[in-house]
Design a protein around this nucleic acid. Structure first.
Lengths: 343, 343
DNA sequence: TCGTATTTCCAAAGCGCTTTGGATGAAGAA
DNA sequence: TTCTTCATCCAAAGCGCTTTGGAAATACGA
């Protein structure tokens, strides 16, 4: 069923039917009701491609899945972020499109998506330090929003981010106040912007307390469970092991916990642990009592906000730059305690 | 840059340029090269909406995210499945579209997506027993593939699934052979088809061994970490606790492990545990030695296969029904051992 | 009554592409 | 030479919608 057929059934022109359905004023209210009834009855749905062609808008927002070619890793936060965004998209009548691209072709993927008119805007996830994609998108003139920020990138752009630095600074200070001096940081990949910021917060807290950072206590890699286990295990075997560990992801924190258990160490007593918690739906940090002391910030909520900001940007491309800094909450759970007495 | 402009630059008709770029034979090879060079030089990308309108195909495949309204839960396998599928879509020139829909409007979401011409085919994830969506999609005539199957649905349809029954039957038998008699099952939601099949396998193995199933050892809910913890904790406090636990998800298995640790029980010695492992990229089951004894089947690979099957279906809508049953591998890890002597 | 708004509708153009049905000219056959 | 046959290209229609620029009919004012 297309517009033409529907209009013939109704004995009206396509113009009138189109207007009736799209809420234009120049159509009699009786006619509108008649049209709407017929549309529902016959299950008429305007063809999105034709509509897009005519209006010049696709009502689609693009995401690029950065399936890194080396590490075939899907970020666990992906699902929740997307679910949050999708909900808002749906509310505003947008669909969501994904394209897959490996590291080498991400830029082309974005360019392609936009220039062939497939999307009205894009979301850039997981920015690296000096993220080159931001410049590319800016020059292309495509509305976009960054989930995160990119140190070293010139110019302004819309972004939503967690205050990674302050949250890790606070978490570190929390541990220092508990008497910890040897605090390890199990972080994400070095070149990720969030990892740099978290490290900066960690270092600043150490600095404020007059603690010299120990490079052997700072690790970084893709944040899997196995990675957390591997690094924690290595560190507790050191001559001078850390008494506390800061971890950039709950998933890796689970690996850390596993390593501690294997070594017969008790979290919160022998070793204190703080993790960053994205509040994933399938991995809540305990029920009433949090398992891990954690810096918590819902990535799903970030997805919702990102979607709304992007839609706003699409609506007014020349509007003022929008930024949004979420503060992570420091929730205290059972994984932290006073530094053990080693003397 | 559109076709018209490009053809004017080249001094050729739109027809010829279009044909040159799409590999039709009726164009001189020199001309074709000239056209291709100009297209690259000017960064010409055919507008997908216009192309779609003209060809009648959208080159997009739809997924519906079933963000259940009650439990705001995103399935953790979502990311990996999608990453697998997306890769294949990209290889064949397809994009991937997501729509969000709550439980009540999923059917409408599919109908809408297809009837307005937004997608050429859809993927149906997480089928329930008697899944009504399958009938809907069949009647609509939209090419689709089911990730999973649906007991009780009449008619044939394309699907790819893991042999849930046989894998859980084998896993259960494995535990029985180790001397376990009280074996618990921490399963997914009752109405999910996979959960029913896993339970059937479990029950059959018990039956074969002459063990009467104990309803108090069978739990089912959405498979979060907290759920695994909660159920395991409850069961080990029973008068007659299980000596082995079968779990439908690695995430929940982690919760089970947490409960066992809290109770001072050692996995593999005091309680044996087998989990189903979807081989998620961020949650590998250990490195060399598997942590959990597990029934393993890569959901990412399932995504790839599903994508290829669907594309094949789109190509030949009248082709024979395609089904694919993957056998899960039983990997033996450190979480299982002989039943403890209780006498 | 006539002239002017206002309401309600429509024909046709246009969005950017593919594809049908030729047209043109060169090469080969007779 | 004249007639076919290819090879190569093009004009125009069509995909299904929105939107421009009226036209017709009705209401209103004087």
């Amino acid at each position: 069923m297309n517009l033409k057929q529907l209009s013939e059934i109704l004995g009206l022109s396509q113009t009138t039917v189109s207007r009736a359905l799209n809420g234009y004023p120049e159509v009699n209210e009786d006619t509108r009701l008649r049209v709407q009834a017929a549309a529902t009855k016959h299950g008429y749905r305007p063809n999105s491609r034709a509509k897009g062609l005519a209006t010049g808008r696709s009502m689609v927002i693009g995401h690029v899945i950065p399936s890194s070619s080396q590490h075939e890793m899907v970020n666990p936060i992906f699902g929740d972020f997307v679910a949050g965004a999708a909900r808002k998209y749906a509310e505003h009548g947008y669909d969501m499109m994904f394209t897959n691209a490996d590291d080498t072709s991400i830029e082309r993927a974005y360019r392609d998506l936009f220039q062939r008119g497939a999307v009205d805007g894009v979301v850039l996830q997981g920015p690296k330090v000096n993220e080159p994609r931001i410049g590319v998108l800016s020059r292309m003139g495509v509305p976009f929003i960054v989930h995160g920020r990119a140190t070293g990138v010139e110019g302004t752009y819309d972004w939503i981010d967690v205050n990674n630095k302050s949250s890790f600074q606070r978490a570190t200070k929390f541990l220092i106040d508990l008497g910890h001096r040897r605090i390890a940081l199990i972080n994400g990949l070095e070149d990720m912007d969030f990892a740099q910021r978290r490290r900066a917060g960690y270092l600043e807290a150490l600095h404020e307390a007059g603690i010299t950072p120990d490079p052997s206590l700072m690790r970084s890699a893709e944040m899997t469970e196995v990675y957390g286990h591997h690094e924690a295990r290595a560190m507790i075997q050191m001559d001078n092991p850390p008494t506390a560990i800061l971890i950039s992801s709950m998933i890796s924190a689970i690996g850390v916990r596993r390593a501690l258990n294997e070594a017969g160490l008790k979290m919160g007593r022998d070793v204190s642990v703080i993790a960053h918690d994205d509040d994933l739906s399938y991995l809540k940090n305990g029920q009433d009592v949090p398992i891990f002391t954690a810096t918590r910030s819902s990535v799903r909520q970030a997805g919702e906000i990102a979607a709304e900001m992007l839609i706003e940007r699409i609506k007014s491309p020349e509007g003022p730059v929008q930024t949004r800094l979420l503060e992570a909450e420091l929730v205290v759970g059972g994984s932290t305690g006073p530094a053990p007495d080693r003397f």
